[in-house]
């Protein structure tokens, strides 16, 4: 994984102050958005879209913590999404509807899953690690599809959003939006602190040169495992939020394609900057939302049948886009911004 490290190494030494503007702008935009949403007339739609953006941003950011800072290419991160969502759904179906119980339980389950699968996966390196995390994610996916009492393949609808200390305040879309924003902000602040801390420094050091870290007396495994657990819990929190946002849970939350999309988001935004992952998630989801229209408008010169089929299969554009980004846009959106800055 040293190749990955080298790509990353430069920003770590750059004066980072210059780019601290980006997270401030991002969070200011999220804070201002509800006001615009009210003005836009399509309040519900805008709010729910942005809430999704924040939730996926949270999940992508949690992945960036181990991928960008630890060079651990986890291809099973959607599993934690699923654990969070099913934690909420399963408890709710047994009458435990308060987030103050659901969330801690879901986080504990995520942590446990991360601990067990991480302990096995981290014994391996490189491509084995990728495949094993992929396989563990798949394992959980199949477990979910076979949970007949909780909807099996089809998933199940939640009767209501979670209560918060007994109150139904989260039913209100604005309140839920703010709750999500607070979660995202808290997770971001926590991740920032972790990255700069003693622990984070060991993690970053291991990314660059694990042998060196061992030679000065660290045991990388322990730090990587701890980071994996923290990251898993954050993604689990995102899962809790997603279940509430969609008011629905399903195995589709944790397909391996979803894990791939999360990696895509992180890389699209730019590895190893945390807020880059949020930008990447926003870009991905907004593209997904508006691409059909863009395609429809952009293909006016084609005949109707092809045009219709193109719009229908808009996802076809994602693949080449992803390939082009990998081949040509090093450093993702944050990288572009950074390069723009330097002239």
């Amino acid at each position: 994984m040293t190749e990955l490290a080298e790509k990353q190494s430069a920003p770590a030494a750059l004066p980072f102050l210059r780019f601290e503007l980006a997270p401030i702008l991002i969070f200011a935009a999220f804070a201002a958005a509800p006001a615009f949403a009210s003005a836009s007339g399509a309040e519900g739609y805008v709010l729910s879209l942005l809430t999704r953006v924040m939730i996926f941003g949270l999940a992508a950011m949690s992945l960036d913590l181990i991928l960008g800072y630890g060079a651990l290419v986890s291809f099973g991160h959607a599993a934690f999404f699923g654990i969070g969502a099913y934690g909420v759904g399963i408890l709710a179906s047994h009458g435990i509807e308060d987030a103050l119980i659901q969330v801690p339980v879901a986080l504990a389950a995520s942590a446990l899953f991360a601990l067990v699968t991480g302990a096995i996966s981290l014994r391996t390196k490189g491509v084995y690690f990728i495949m094993i995390t992929l396989a563990f994610g798949q394992m959980l996916f199949f477990l979910a599809t076979s949970l007949a009492p909780y909807g099996g393949d089809d998933g199940m609808t939640l009767a209501t959003r979670s209560l918060l200390g007994g109150s139904g305040i989260l039913e209100n879309d604005f309140a839920f939006y703010w709750a999500t924003l607070i979660c995202l902000l808290a997770a971001y602040a926590l991740s920032r602190a972790i990255v700069a801390s003693r622990f984070g420094r060991v993690l970053r050091g291991t990314r660059e040169n694990a042998t060196r870290m061992e030679a000065i007396g660290f045991q990388p495994f322990r730090y990587q495992l701890a980071a994996y657990v923290i990251s898993g819990m954050m993604a689990g929190l995102a899962g809790c939020l997603l279940a509430n946002q969609a008011e629905f849970i399903s195995p589709a939350f944790m397909t391996w394609q979803r894990s791939g999309e999360l990696i895509f988001m992180v890389v699209l935004g730019g590895l190893g900057s945390l807020h880059g992952a949020i930008i990447g998630a926003a870009a991905f989801l907004l593209l997904e939302e508006f691409l059909p229209e863009i395609l429809h408008a952009g293909s006016f010169f084609l005949n109707d049948d092809i045009r219709w089929r193109l719009t229908e299969n808009w996802q076809m554009v994602f693949g080449p886009l992803l390939i082009l980004i990998v081949l040509f846009v090093r450093g993702g959106i944050m990288g572009l911004l950074r390069r723009g800055h330097h002239g």
Binding site: A193, S197, F199, R201, G217, A226
Partner: peptide, 18 residues
């Protein structure tokens, strides 16, 4: 980092190590 390795725990998640 080498100093850190021998001085106390590195399981500290807060405080800027730099």
């Amino acid at each position: 980092l080498a100093v850190q390795a021998r001085s106390g725990s590195s399981f500290r998640f807060f405080g800027n190590a730099a």
